[in-house]
């Protein structure tokens, strides 16, 4: 087993995995990682990840617990830095700019690459303020009417407007779980990011709310690029265009073992471990 891993590792040092597979359209890559490794203190959480994310596509990150999916996702908009001991090596290229270059402000990165979290986390403020906050802190200056307009547009795009239009002054936290998560999505898209990262956005929701979020993702991807971490195989199969399969290496760091179109991953994966995982044999 270790021998096998050494071989794949060697191959990868010369060629990034995404190009090696030849599955993505190079001209339409928005976000790309190059030999990205993330450490928490001395512990290496992900190892040498080379992935490309296509514009206006949904890419799913799947794999068993602890394989570094969330860490990889959070490294893409530098959210990992909120953990004091976290450190990244390698590069994340966003339209050719390395997000880890010394002159890059992580605050600006996160405005362009938004995030939706596992547990719905609306601010304990009104529904209206939840949306407006992101604009205000980013220096948006405009009339009240324009703000009303953006709030409505964001809520409409998140398929929440009809449910909340009469109670915009109510607390965001008073909504149901599924509504809260759609509010969080509306909040994320209000600041017009290009990429939206979703960290298991449906794991705290019931099946009906989950379905709504999935429909919403398929709608949103026309304007945004979505990267989603999910434990739910069916979800990855239903919504995503590309899938990256991650596994834990013997040193407990996570790596991408296979990346391809979702169809290929779920119908004829190249790696035996991917096949076992997507068919529910482990994890």
């Amino acid at each position: 087993m270790p021998v096998l891993i050494n071989v794949t590792q060697k191959e990868r040092e010369t060629e990034p995995i995404s190009e090696e597979m030849g599955v993505v359209d190079r001209a339409n890559v928005v976000l790309e990682t190059q030999r990205l490794s993330v450490f928490y203190g001395n512990f290496k959480a992900i190892h040498d990840v080379n992935l490309s994310f296509q514009k206006n596509k949904i890419t799913a990150l799947i794999g068993p617990s602890g394989c570094g999916k969330s860490t990889l996702l959070r490294a893409l908009n530098r959210m990992n830095e909120l953990v004091p001991s976290a450190r990244a090596e390698g590069a994340v290229l966003y339209r050719g700019h390395n997000l880890y270059a010394p002159n890059v402000d992580p605050v600006e990165v996160r405005r362009r690459i938004g995030m939706v979290f596992q547990k719905p986390n609306p601010f304990p403020k009104s529904i209206y303020e939840n949306i407006a906050f992101g604009l205000r802190i980013n220096g948006w200056k405009g009339s009240k009417a324009e703000m009303d307009d953006i709030v409505e547009r964001s809520l409409r795009r998140a398929a929440l407007w009809d449910e909340v239009k009469d109670k915009l002054k109510q607390l965001g936290t008073s909504l149901s779980g599924g509504q809260q998560q759609r509010l969080c999505i509306a909040r994320a898209i209000a600041v017009e990011p290009e990429v939206i990262l979703m960290d298991e956005p449906c794991s705290a929701l019931d099946p009906i709310a989950t379905l709504k979020i999935e429909e919403l993702m398929i709608e949103l991807v026309k304007q945004y690029t979505i990267i989603i971490v999910t434990h739910n195989m069916q979800q990855a199969a239903r919504v995503s265009d590309y899938t990256a399969m991650m596994m834990m290496r013997p040193d407990r760091s996570g790596e991408v073992i296979e990346f391809d179109t979702t169809e290929t991953i779920f119908t004829k994966p190249k790696d035996k471990r991917t096949e076992d995982y997507v068919s529910g044999r482990f994890g």
Binding site: G114, P124, K125
Partner: peptide, 26 residues
């Protein structure tokens, strides 16, 4: 809750904006 801080950072708030507008009121 840490979720509130993460939410604010996630839409491009600076640390001070996060503390002042979200953490302190709570």
């Amino acid at each position: 809750p840490n979720g509130i801080r993460q939410a604010a950072y996630g839409i491009g708030a600076t640390q001070w904006q996060t503390v002042w507008h979200q953490v302190l009121p709570v």
